[in-house]
């Protein structure tokens, strides 16, 4: 069995602060991490590998620095990694990203039986790339999966929706997007980390995977960002400072009653 996991290197957005004067992002000191949901996808692949004996390939599209994210997955125990990196991919939206990853996966020597994604990336939060890649590859997809088992060519999964879950089945090959609750990602072993430092990282360009320039990067991205801004502040709010806790509590409860909120 061949399992492909697509990951994304993202800025650790929980570290980001806004400069209140200029209303811009302060990105200094923000580190790049593997998108946390993708770590669950990698873990799911490694668990299946341990159980069924699969080969696990991790793929990402990104700048050359994304190599470090791939190294982290080597340390965790994946067998192969591929970095899709090319200036031509610059500015890709979810459509163009799905296209490039689809092309990259199709370019792999060994066809995947299972393609895993995290449910979404924490920087974009779109959850669109998994379904997009499935469409480009014309493969079935099950999203928001919290449990997966594979028996022969049959995948049995649990898919979560708003007020419950469904038990589902599908034949391989199949695309899944996984939830955080699926597992707790392992931490890399010391041997894994030492191996990862020295590993060769396979890099593919747009031309190598046969990506059509019209569908790549900004040219291939139907959406366009036209404005970036911070949301406006609320006017007319009350703010009390330096008041003793009991007085503050009395004031706010009084206000809530006066406004008939409670």
């Amino acid at each position: 069995m061949h399992i492909v996991v697509c990951i994304k290197q993202v800025p650790d957005t929980s570290d980001v602060k806004i400069n209140p004067e200029t209303n811009t992002l302060i990105r200094e000191g923000v580190v790049s991490i593997i998108n946390p949901f993708d770590e669950n996808a990698v873990e799911a692949a490694l668990v299946l590998k341990e159980k069924l004996g699969a080969k696990v390939t991790v793929m990402t599209m990104g700048p050359p620095q994304a190599e470090s994210a791939l190294r982290e997955t080597i340390a965790l125990g994946v067998d192969d990694v591929v970095l899709l990196s090319d200036r031509a991919f610059a500015g890709s939206d979810t459509w163009a990203t799905s296209y490039a990853l689809g092309k990259g996966i199709a370019h792999l020597e060994e066809r995947p039986d299972l393609i895993l994604f995290g449910k979404q990336a924490i920087d974009g939060d779109t959850a669109q790339v998994g379904p997009g890649v499935a469409e480009f590859l014309n493969l079935p997809i099950i999203t928001y999966v919290r449990k997966v088992e594979v028996e022969g060519q049959l995948a049995k999964v649990e898919r979560v929706f708003e007020d419950g879950y469904e038990r589902m089945e599908a034949e391989l090959p199949l695309v899944l997007t996984v939830l955080k609750e699926m597992n707790v990602p392992r931490m890399a072993s010391l041997r894994g980390r030492m191996k990862a430092k020295k590993a060769e990282i396979k890099k593919w360009t747009a031309a190598e995977i046969g990506a059509d320039p019209e569908n790549t990067g900004l040219a291939g991205s139907p959406t366009k960002v036209v404005k970036i801004f911070s949301p406006p502040k609320k006017v007319g709010g009350i703010k009390i400072e330096g008041t003793a806790a009991l007085d503050a509590a009395r004031t706010v409860v009084g206000k809530l009653k006066e406004q008939k909120v409670i």
Binding site: M187, A188, L190, R193, M194, K197
Partner: peptide
Amino acid sequence: SESQIEIRDMVREF
């Protein structure tokens, strides 16, 4: 050494 830095970082994170 290289491995000492790895060990320190990985245990710190752990």
